[in-house]
């Protein structure tokens, strides 16, 4: 296997004294779909935030494209091609759909491709083109998730972390969004899918990491991991 595009080594992340992620280690190979699954409160979002530079790690190392990016702030990482779709979409609710997407091309590295990227996002999510002039705060949950995904794609990333994009959405919408993610991945982008819903994530991903109480307790290829193993790791039985 080639050198992973993203490597997490023994990362610890805290909120005050509370340790939310402890010695987390995982690899994300270039071009793959990798899932990170775990129950409520397992530390998935904290780990994603730490990788993406939103949260500072208290120990450990993060490497992206072979470079040490530990503790680098989010606004720098995005210019290097690492993007996070944060949990709960976090659209700019008082801005229009199109302004949200244009914000994605704010990094200087992405500005030149604004037109192409915008066309591509509208192709991927035609409903966003219809609603381009609506405030994103007026959209449904699924549409907001599409805005957040589109916005992340606009930054022209090599690797995108998706934090629970299916949360609270109707199954048909989840199915649609997952189909789009497969399309994105087929274009060569590396994808990390964070989910509580293990079934769909495992089916979509080639590689799985399972988190429990702040630790990565099981890693393996989706084909090799058995349901039994996953269940045990997920619930800590």
């Amino acid at each position: 296997m080639s050198e992973p595009i993203l490597k997490v080594e023994g990362v610890q992340a805290k909120y005050g004294d509370f340790i939310a992620v402890e010695s987390a280690t995982l690899d994300v190979p270039q071009g793959m779909i990798v899932s990170v699954i775990g129950a409520n409160g397992a530390g998935k979002s904290t780990l994603m935030d730490t990788i993406a530079g939103v949260h500072k790690p208290s120990a450990g190392k993060v490497y992206f494209k072979g470079e040490d990016i530990t503790g680098m702030p989010a606004e720098k990482l995005v210019t290097r091609g690492l993007s996070l779709v944060p949990q709960g979409s976090r659209c700019f609710i008082r801005m229009t759909v199109e302004d949200n997407l244009i914000m994605g091309s704010y990094p200087k590295s992405a500005r030149g491709k604004l037109k192409e990227s915008l066309e591509r996002v509208y192709e991927l999510f035609p409903v966003l083109k219809q609603k381009r002039n609506d405030l994103s705060g007026s959209l449904s949950g699924g549409q907001r998730q599409m805005v957040a995904i589109g916005r992340a794609l606009m930054t022209n990333p090599d690797c995108v972390l998706f934090d629970e994009i299916s949360l609270g959405l109707a199954p048909t919408i989840i199915k649609d969004i997952y189909a789009r993610i497969k399309e994105i991945s087929a274009g060569g982008m590396t994808v990390v899918l964070v989910e509580q819903d293990t079934q769909r994530a495992i089916r979509t991903a080639q590689l799985c990491h399972i988190m429990l109480k702040g630790r990565v307790v099981l890693s393996g290829s989706s084909k090799e991991l058995t349901d039994e193993e996953i269940k045990k790791a997920y619930f800590g039985l």
Binding site: A52, G53, V54, P73, A74, E75, V78, T79, S83, L84, P86, R90, C91, F92, I93, R94, M95, M103, G104, Y106, P107, K108, A110, R151, A152, T155
Partner: peptide, 13 residues
């Protein structure tokens, strides 16, 4: 964007 959501804005660079 910053006035709407600081975290999301920093994720946009």
């Amino acid at each position: 964007a910053t006035s709407d959501d600081i975290v999301a804005a920093s994720l946009m660079g």
